[in-house]
Nucleic acid binder design. Structure first.
Lengths: 191, 191
DNA sequence: GTCTATAATTCGATAGAC
DNA sequence: GTCTATCGAATTATAGAC
């Protein structure tokens, strides 16, 4: 064994860097220094900096799309599908908080064709979410509000977890947390 | 009059650039080209690129802090303060969507001392929000949930507007929109 | 597989002519 | 006030020794 590092070390360091400083500010030198090698060595594992972002980005995007497809294809009632969807977001944000953060902004740094691929991927994901929401409206389980407003409010209401969970010292009981968030989204903040 | 452009042109172009590509990818040359001048000319109006970001960032941060202070100091009941707070977010996101977007991530590109200033500013803002929420819990108007979960869910639930409103073709009636969003946050998505 | 050295580019910012 | 020209630093990526 004459390997100083592994490919996983590079991806882990890249992810940490992008999460804290953003893609552009995370230099190959900084990634290398973080794991104790020189920048040139990275190119023995990956082709380019963009490939690092691309891999990390589509890996987590696939998990979201797969998850929502499975929920959609399940036999749950529409409202229960939405509950499952919120749970999916909480679980992925808990398991992969750093990677989830990439989905918000960093896709802009992909080159044109990869960027289009990502946006198509995201559209497929959001279309399924919108479809589930529409079904829940149609069967009278959800408020009859403009579907975009409903969709974005739901999506947005769980988009703070990826930045909060890593810093959360108290380590709130995850089952309790999910219960509370679900309650807030389904039945509102007011008592 | 021998001025080709104005300071406002520079800030407007900078803001548009950062909104679409991020601070690091928005070069002084690109800003200049967008308004039909050379990059060097910008330095006749501002000292540095960071000054552009700093000005735009604190300008909008001040509006949020001022707004929430006025709400807190008003004679509204706690729950009504929260309604006012949601309305404040919707109004600022509508009036300054590009600038609001800066608050999410771009503050990371400020230099250390300005970054600390921003974070102190943001903490003051969120502390007031937390205080209002706690008061509303105490008087029995809000669900008795961990205040961080409540705060982040509310803050997050209106954080999609700045990116959605500029692209919203249908131009939904703003009064109607505010009513619906308020309803979703206060009473939940389920009917 | 990792290193040193460096090529090629791009960026923020300045100097000085007009 | 705006321009051309350019400096100096930083970046991604490659070449080649070991």
């Amino acid at each position: 064994m004459n390997r100083k590092i592994s490919e996983a070390d590079i991806y882990r360091s890249t992810l940490k860097g992008i999460y804290h400083q953003g893609y552009k500010s995370t230099t190959m030198r900084a990634i290398a220094a973080d794991i104790g090698i020189e920048a040139a060595t990275i190119y023995n594992y990956v082709d380019s900096k963009e490939q690092l972002l691309e891999t990390l980005l589509f890996e987590i995007a696939d998990k979201f799309l797969e998850g929502v497809i499975h929920i959609d294809e399940s036999s749950y009632a529409p409202l229960d599908k939405i509950k499952q969807f919120v749970a999916l977001n909480i679980n992925l944000s808990r398991s992969y908080p750093y990677q989830v953060s990439l989905l918000v902004n960093e896709w802009r740094h992909l080159k044109s064709n990869k960027q289009e691929k990502f946006l198509a991927h995201r559209k497929a994901y959001e279309d399924i979410v919108a479809k589930i929401i529409q079904e829940a409206i149609d069967c009278g389980d959800l408020r009859d509000v403009h579907v975009d407003i409903l969709k974005n409010t739901i999506l947005s209401a769980v988009r703070w977890l990826f930045s909060w969970l890593p810093e959360n010292k108290e380590k709130i009981n995850p089952v309790e947390m999910e219960k509370h968030i679900l309650e807030l989204i389904l039945n509102g903040i007011s008592k």
